[in-house]
């Protein structure tokens, strides 16, 4: 009697198990790796209408973030500076440079410069800049080392779990109020010492700044 199924079909169940596992593994790994803001958002670096370099202004020249983003301590959003702020210096510095043509035109006519927004949380997330900046959370925690970026890119994921990492343990991130815009600041050069100091003053600041780590939904979602 001849076999209905050829001999290799004996291995079929094993092949299905191995093949299925491999496929499922690859798909899971792909979703885990790619289907997250860590992939989608991080690294977003749009071309801006004016080639403004934060590395030059905030890094090399050492200007404070708040010189331009002057509402960050008073308002829920951090302002894009008006072009007249640029002209505070650029009415003299590089005053005929073609790279600044759009800024001069904007300052003269009031026509806005179409800057491209990079960091944008969903519209149902009510993030308040002033609350964070006034309570010892530095710009660098969400925006990365902007003072080293020639062109700004999205450095952190700003996903909900990113927010909650800090909201669950604010003491690990707070810093002295006068170091908020000092993006390269660490409690100490030595990492072990830095961790020790962070732990010590972290608790103190959480108390002094009266930080309530709000983990209820309506803290951010309204």
């Amino acid at each position: 009697m001849s076999a209905i199924f050829p001999k290799w079909t004996n291995k079929l169940p094993l092949m299905i198990i191995i093949g299925g596992t491999l496929t499922a593994g690859a798909v899971t790994a792909g979703v885990w790796y790619y289907f997250t803001p860590k992939y989608f958002r991080v690294g977003y670096q749009p071309i801006q209408p004016v080639a403004f370099s934060h590395a030059t202004h905030a890094g090399q020249l050492g200007m404070d973030c708040r010189y331009c983003h002057s509402t960050v301590e008073k308002s829920w959003f951090s302002n894009i500076p008006s072009s007249s702020t640029c002209m505070n210096c650029h009415n003299q510095v590089l005053k005929d440079d073609p790279r600044l043509a759009l800024v001069r035109e904007s300052a003269a006519t009031g026509k806005p410069i179409p800057w491209v927004q990079i960091h944008r949380v969903p519209d149902f997330v009510y993030f308040n800049h002033s609350v964070h900046v006034n309570r010892g959370i530095s710009c660098v925690e969400c925006h990365g080392r902007v003072d080293q970026m020639e062109e700004v890119y999205h450095a952190k994921s700003l996903s909900m779990s990113f927010c909650l990492d800090c909201h669950n343990d604010p003491a690990s991130k707070v810093r002295p109020a006068d170091k908020i815009t000092d993006l390269g600041w660490t409690p100490s050069e030595d990492p072990n010492e830095a961790a020790k100091r962070q732990e010590a003053f972290g608790k103190k600041y959480v108390h002094d700044f009266r930080i309530e780590s709000m983990n209820n939904c309506s803290a951010c979602h309204r």
């Binding site: 790796y33 958002r41 991080v42 969903p122």
Partner: peptide, 18 residues
Amino acid sequence: RGDLSRNRPMQIFPDMKR
């Protein structure tokens, strides 16, 4: 992850994000 890109982040599920 983290590669620089000129393209806007993709929104697969809009979910009233905008």
